[in-house]
Design a protein around this nucleic acid. Structure first.
Lengths: 211, 211
DNA sequence: CCAGAATATCGCAGGCACTGCATTCTTGCA
DNA sequence: TGCAAGAATGCAGTGCCTGCGATATTCTGG
């Protein structure tokens, strides 16, 4: 119904990236860079919105039209990556076992993590050092857990919220967090996808035979 | 006052519960009750510290000598329960497989949850309805995950932080959250320990054969 | 029982994140 | 070019949270 119309609109926007849209993206990036520099130099807590605004050459009020909270500057495109996992999962065959589908979906995005390695390490380092930033990231992950569980529920033709889908989504995210943490702590030299695969594999085989 | 001096002294020496300590606990409980009533009636966001203080008959400033943040009133004794899981895990034989030990430790505390059912349901309901409270609970859980992983690491005689211990701790907490959520959504009629056992069992057997 | 030590409560001033609203400026389009 | 949409800004205000100094309460040793 609205599908054709939407396509036209999207195409139109992609062809002509107006000055307005371009400036908005530039400024957003500018705020991110300025903020992350300040966070690294003086710490997250000791950096104020006013300081970020000054460094990014915007009015303090303007900051909040780009990011809802100070924490979200660090997480920024975090959300788009996780949304991609969900898209990936939706496109996979329903005949595939749910855990396999989850693993495959996470691995696709994990490969991208390697590409933007340095930038991600900076952000994750700030996140690991500050409780409120980490709390915010967990809060966002809770939202994605809901979305993941919902997709899994539909795949299994469950009518109501079921424990199994929730558990699968929750453990998948646990795999991701554990892998990311280990990746950071070990100097992010190992391949992230391999770590994730290890975690998913462990849970696939069962934890009774662990160790 | 009405009691003989000797009794007071004996009580003090044996239990160390002076008037000071007793009043502190009473007031803490009083603040919790007042706050939770207000949260239920007007919502967490629409309740201010000043309102809580007025209802609990204390100065607003005093609130923060009992709770570090507004969110923590809802979570209150949450932390002591999770600490008990860690104590339980420490006392278990090291020959026991880690996942079995984790399951047993969580089940012990889950039984207590049933005892304080109504109070917990009130708190969890507020938590489920408010993002910042849930975020705070996840932040606290992250701390317990660290502690759990550390105990598991020592059990396995690992020298440095290892991926396996972290994954075990993380998935165990995922089991707990999933179970609690399902318990709440289904009208908290089912036995919580049974739900937790289901989750742990699923992961013990392996997720490849899921569904 | 009573001073002084230890500790709790309280009031005050202030910092900072975040919001709503009204105004001004920039950009897109006819 | 002129007008409508949207972005940036300034301002005033709310509310959480903190440090500090003053006051009140409880504990302890004599």
């Amino acid at each position: 119904m609205h599908q054709p119309l939407q396509c036209v609109k999207i195409l139109h926007m992609n062809e002509e990236v107006g000055l307005r849209e371009r400036k908005k993206r530039e400024r957003r990036r500018c705020i991110e860079d300025a903020a992350i520099d300040l966070f690294e130099d003086h710490g997250f807590d000791r950096t104020t919105i006013d300081q970020i605004a000054a460094a990014a050459d915007i009015a303090p009020r303007t900051f909040f039209s780009y990011f809802p909270t100070k924490e979200d500057v660090v997480l920024a495109d975090y959300s788009t990556r996780l949304e991609r996992i969900i898209d990936e999962l939706r496109e996979r065959s329903e005949s595939e076992p749910p855990w396999d589908a989850l693993q495959a979906s996470f691995l696709v995005v994990a490969a991208d993590y390697e590409a933007a390695r340095d930038d991600l390490v900076r952000r994750f380092t700030i996140m690991a050092a500050n409780g409120t930033v980490y709390a915010r990231s967990l809060q966002l992950q809770a939202g994605w857990e809901d979305a993941l569980a919902e997709v899994l529920r539909q795949r299994a033709n469950q009518k109501t919220e079921d424990l199994e889908s929730r558990l699968l989504a929750s453990t998948a995210l646990a795999c991701m967090r554990s892998s990311l943490r280990h990746w950071l702590l070990t100097g992010h030299n190992a391949a992230l996808p391999a770590l994730i695969q290890t975690c998913f594999g462990q849970l696939a085989d069962g934890l009774t035979h662990s160790r």
